[in-house]
């Protein structure tokens, strides 16, 4: 009997993976937190230089919000990271979408650019860190350049994909109605390509965040990545944890916000997830 039940509910149970009961998740997380607390503060199973207690981590977190570390408070480091990230991702999306449209619409340009783009695309963003620093110094713009390199390709690829799936019947229809090229681009092509462009932007946003953390880890004097690098350097594991937690939360928020933005701007696209 249970066998039969499971047959008809196969679909349901798998769909629920994403939005599964909140309660169970909370319980599991509380268990982890409790185990962590037990292992450190109560039973002293591990040394604090190896795994600090949750209390220490929270104390460090609050300490960092008021006490500047390496010239900035936690908020200061966060702000700097976000600024670099926004600069790189913004430029990546803007130029990526433009190039994507050009590549989709102008085959000669596509033929010229695609091979070079494909070769460069396989060099990971972090491999650009040393040369970015040599070119621009260990500055805001070097970090932003690495973020840009991470954010740019997904925008180009997805925009090109979106634009090239526009049904020629639509553009032809618009043309027979006398629409000039820019109008066709704005009213016919962009709406159809928008979901794909958004997919590219979403990947760009999270790739960019990942690249930023890496870049700040490798070089730099401020930012969240720098914070955890310093934690490692000073043997301050609590600070590493604080950095990881903030990076994780901000990353989740960023992803959530762009998903909301997609729903606002493209309300007709129902499968926004």
């Amino acid at each position: 009997m249970t066998q039969i039940k499971s047959a008809s509910s196969t679909r349901n149970r798998s769909v629920r993976v994403a939005s599964q009961p909140f309660v169970y998740g909370a319980v599991t997380l509380l268990c982890v937190l409790a185990a962590w607390f037990l292992a450190t503060d109560v039973l002293h199973l591990v040394g604090s230089s190896f795994l600090p207690s949750p209390v220490t981590v929270i104390a460090t977190l609050f300490g960092l919000t008021v006490q500047p570390f390496a010239g900035a408070t936690l908020m200061g480091h966060l702000g700097l990271s976000l600024a670099r990230w926004a600069l790189g991702v913004g430029a990546g999306i803007l130029l990526g979408v433009l190039l994507g449209i050009v590549l989709a619409w102008l085959p000669p340009v596509r033929a010229a650019v695609t091979p070079i783009f494909e070769v460069l695309r396989y060099i990971p963003p972090f491999a650009w860190v040393p040369i970015a620093v040599l070119w621009l110094g260990a500055s805001m713009s070097a970090q932003a350049l690495v973020v840009f390199i991470a954010a740019f390709p997904p925008c180009v690829i997805n925009t090109q994909l979106g634009v090239s799936t526009v049904d020629p019947i639509l553009t032809n229809a618009a043309r027979t109605l006398g629409a000039p090229p820019m109008t066709i681009l704005r009213r016919v092509v962009v709406p159809v390509a928008a979901p794909s462009i958004f997919t590219g932007a979403r990947i760009a946003v999270s790739n960019g965040w990942m690249a930023l953390v890496g870049a700040e880890l490798i070089v730099g004097k401020e930012g969240l990545g720098f914070l955890i690098a310093q934690g490692q350097f000073n043997g301050d594991v609590a600070m590493i944890f604080v950095g990881i937690i903030v990076i994780g939360i901000v990353g989740t928020l960023i992803d959530f916000l762009i998903a909301r933005a997609e729903v606002w701007t493209l309300p007709w696209k129902t499968d926004s997830k």
Partner: peptide, 25 residues
């Protein structure tokens, strides 16, 4: 799912690189 998924969701949003300092320590 009840056990693994919440833990996985906890790890997933953190860029893998951010674990490097912890891994080194």
């Amino acid at each position: 799912r009840w056990i693994v998924w919440p833990l996985f969701q906890l790890i997933r949003p953190v860029p893998p690189l951010a674990w490097i300092p912890l891994a080194i320590v």
